[in-house]
Every structure is written in structure tokens, then in C-alpha cells.
């Protein structure tokens, strides 16, 4: 019976995990900023996820679950530790409704921004801002999903997202010569 369960688990895991492969890789590459490290990260994520698949509760959010594994794996990696140590999080438990303090005007003339420019700006974001922004804008996760993936309260997701967007606008303004 255990053999049969393993086989069912493996088949189900593959069905759930492989459709997310491209997205997970893209996200991993954004986090690590390096192809080899991204591949290592994704591979380790899949190995850990399959190993721990029995602990996954059917009916709950698999995407948030596997992103959480990837992110935790990244945070304990050398690159992840370096990224989080050099950029400490500021007081992110603040009011998410508050606009990001910035003396710059709200409107950015993105018509001048090329895709490479935006990519460069995302890459410059501190990793905690980069990940929350990508999970929201690129993966189109709900706040609840992001909270599960990042293992933080929804309030933290909202404030971190707000700061990430503000930081991105600031970087873009500078790159566009407006700041």
C-alpha cells in the first residue's frame, strides 16, 4: 500500500509542480540574479517539495506552498543570507495605507522607460521588496497567497508591497533623470 501511495503522490506532485516550473525558475533567477544558482535553487526546491509532499494538505494552496519552500531555501543559501543581511528590513509593520514618503511627484513618465530599464530597477530593489512585488504583479497572487508564500501576516504584505512600489518608482525616476 505504501508503494502505491508513493506512486500516487509522485504522479500528483508532478501534475501540480511541473506547470509551475517556468514561473519558479523565473522567480528563482530574480532572487539569485544568477542562472547556476537559480537552477540549484529550483532543483533543491523540487527535491524538498517532493520529499515533504506528504505534509502538504490537499485542497490548500500548492503554489503558495512550493513558493514558500523556494523562498526559505533561498533565504538559507549563501546568496540569500548575503542579500538579507546587507539590506535589513525597515519598520515594515507600519501602516500599509500610508503612501510611501517621497518628495518626488507621483507620476512617472513611463512612456520613456524601456523594458530593460524596468528590469534594471526591479533588480536594484532589496530582495524583500523584489520578491513581494514579483509575487503580486507577475504571479498575480492575492495578498493571502503572498502572506502564505512569505510566511508573514497580510498586513506585512501590504506595507512591504507599498514600500516596494515606492522604492521602484524612486529608482525609475532616478534612471529617467527625474529625481
Amino acid at each position: 500500500m505504501e508503494v502505491f501511495k508513493d506512486r500516487v503522490d509522485a504522479a500528483t506532485f508532478e501534475e501540480l509542480a511541473m506547470p509551475l516550473f517556468d514561473q519558479l525558475y523565473n522567480f528563482a533567477h530574480w532572487l539569485t540574479q544568477n542562472r547556476d544558482e537559480a537552477e540549484d535553487l529550483v532543483q533543491e526546491t523540487y527535491v524538498k517539495a517532493l520529499k515533504g509532499f506528504s505534509s502538504f494538505q490537499p485542497g490548500t494552496n500548492f503554489r503558495a506552498w512550493i513558493y514558500r519552500i523556494l523562498r526559505n531555501t533561498f533565504l538559507t543559501s549563501r546568496t540569500g543570507l548575503r542579500a538579507t543581511m546587507t539590506v535589513p528590513l525597515d519598520a515594515e509593520e507600519g501602516d500599509a495605507m500610508m503612501p510611501v514618503a517621497s518628495g518626488n511627484p507621483e507620476t512617472i513618465f513611463l512612456g520613456r522607460a524601456s523594458q530593460e530599464l524596468v528590469q534594471g530597477a526591479i533588480a536594484e530593489l532589496p530582495v524583500h521588496y523584489r520578491e513581494v512585488l514579483l509575487l503580486c504583479e507577475l504571479e498575480e497572487m492575492s495578498y493571502q497567497e503572498i502572506a502564505e508564500a512569505l510566511a508573514v501576516p497580510i498586513g506585512t504584505v501590504m506595507s512591504r508591497l507599498s514600500r516596494a512600489r515606492g522604492a521602484l518608482r524612486d529608482i525609475l525616476r532616478q534612471k529617467l533623470g527625474g529625481g
Binding site: W30, E137, L138
Partner: peptide, 22 residues
């Protein structure tokens, strides 16, 4: 800006070889 980030975020694609490996 959301659209720009969404488009720019789709930046990296895994190789076919890596997919096969996984």
C-alpha cells in the same frame, strides 16, 4: 507601472535541458 513590471518580470526562462533534469 503594474503592466510594465509584469512584462519586465517575465525575464528568465529555464533551459530545456534543466527542465528534463527536473
Amino acid at each position: 507601472l503594474k503592466r510594465e513590471v509584469q512584462a519586465a518580470g517575465k525575464r528568465y526562462a529555464p533551459t530545456a535541458e534543466f527542465r528534463r533534469k527536473i
